[in-house]
Nucleic acid binder design. Structure first.
Length: 356
DNA sequence: AAAGGCCTCAACCGCTATAAA
DNA sequence: ATTTATAGCGGTTGAGGCCTT
């Protein structure tokens, strides 16, 4: 039921952009801003429709676009966010500065989906696959899980190299089988993704608050109650309390509001940190010093440093000792946080029973 | 070296949401 | 309240490069 092309759009160029066209578009926007995209092509001397110009600018020419390979952290974050948001590429992109929704979508479809499938995880549900393909993958997973035990005990380099993968495979296989065997994989209770939860807590805005309350907190509380803690050395911090002064027109706490995250300040002390966005400060006519002396600021936090690069802010702290480049959401869950020794014991007992 | 298949990703299409008239 | 224009989103396509045979 889409709109048929208007008279103006007939005969316009389609397909790949030439460097000359890119230059024209860039020059025009630098001088005049984009204004109305529909009007832009004529004004800029381009034989393209406005939509094509907008896409070219926002997906390729924009100066803040980050090019090149996705880092492991970015990959991890995409998987984590996708497990909560699904194919909401634009929402996912707001958490990866410099990456476009299109780029993330492509990367998901060409790389991450396959990666999850290979690991026996359904890329749609982010749960272990329970179909026959999983069973056909079992020998590989078993091999990966067992290789650690077969290695020369003095070959430390190889041991280190294989350790992470073996652990991943074990944890994943345990997850798969627990779900499949216990209730056919239909359990509605899943371990929360603790990395994502902590990340969302660290970037206070309404979207994140909504996600935490809606999807993650219930599971984390349940897991805590059952004795699985994301951070055994400290209590789960309380959810951020969001002031309605920032959203005076939004009476409903559950209403989903897109909040632009551009610049933030991070206040740190030791391992704890707290962030506040520039928007928040602007909205409340505050500078950093005002904020430091405000009652909202936690007195114990001491240093303030301006952060212009959101990279340093939104990256979750990944446990590099257990995450290989092939890791996925599973080992960042509470399951993945199990103490290594405990895990070995649990797995050993479990496997002994299961395989016998 | 050539042909065919596969993979990647920029760009497009169809649609919805929102703003403006 | 309705219509129209515009922006934005997610799914899909296809050109071109890469890999395999």
């Amino acid at each position: 039921m889409g709109r048929s092309p208007s008279r103006d759009e007939i005969g316009l160029k389609k397909g790949p952009w030439t460097p000359e066209e890119d230059q024209k578009l860039t020059d025009y926007i630098h001088k005049n801003g984009h204004g109305s995209w529909r009007a832009l092509p004529k004004l800029a001397g381009l034989n393209r429709c406005g939509k094509s110009c907008r896409l070219r600018w926002s997906n390729y020419l924009r100066p803040d676009i980050k090019r090149g390979k996705f880092s492991d952290d970015e990959e991890q974050l995409i998987i984590s966010l996708h497990s909560v948001l699904g194919n909401k590429w634009s929402q996912i992109a707001t958490h990866l500065p410099g990456r476009t929704d299109n780029e993330i979508k492509n990367y998901w479809n060409t790389h991450l989906k396959k990666k999850l499938l290979q690991m026996g995880i359904d890329p749609v549900t982010h749960r272990p696959r329970t179909d026959l393909n999983l069973l056909s993958n079992l020998p590989n997973l078993l091999a990966a899980a067992n290789i650690f035990n077969l290695m020369n005990p003095w070959d430390n380099v190889s041991r280190l190299h294989v350790d992470a993968q073996a652990q991943v495979a074990k944890v994943q296989l345990l997850n798969n089988l627990l779900q499949v065997i216990s209730n056919g994989g239909s359990s509605s209770i899943q371990p929360p993704n603790m990395e994502l939860l902590n990340h969302l807590r660290s970037v206070p805005n309404r979207d994140n608050n909504y996600l935490i309350n809606q999807y993650l907190e219930p599971n984390s509380q349940l897991l805590n109650a059952l004795g699985y803690s994301s951070n055994p050395s400290s209590q789960t911090p309380p959810p951020y309390n969001f002031s309605n002064s920032k959203y005076p027109n939004v009476p409903n706490e559950n209403e989903n509001v897109a909040v632009e995250e551009v610049d933030c300040y991070r206040f740190e002390q030791g391992s704890s940190s707290r962030m506040v966005s520039n928007n928040y400060l602007n909205d409340n006519n505050m500078n950093v010093q005002d904020y430091l002396s405000s009652p909202e600021y936690i007195p114990a936090l001491v240093s303030a440093s301006p952060e212009r690069n959101m990279n340093n802010i939104i990256k979750p702290e990944i446990n590099t000792t257990t995450n290989s480049s092939t890791s996925t959401t599973f080992e960042t869950t509470a399951w993945g946080e199990l103490n290594m020794d405990d895990e070995e014991n649990i797995l050993s007992d479990y496997w002994t029973e299961l395989l016998e």
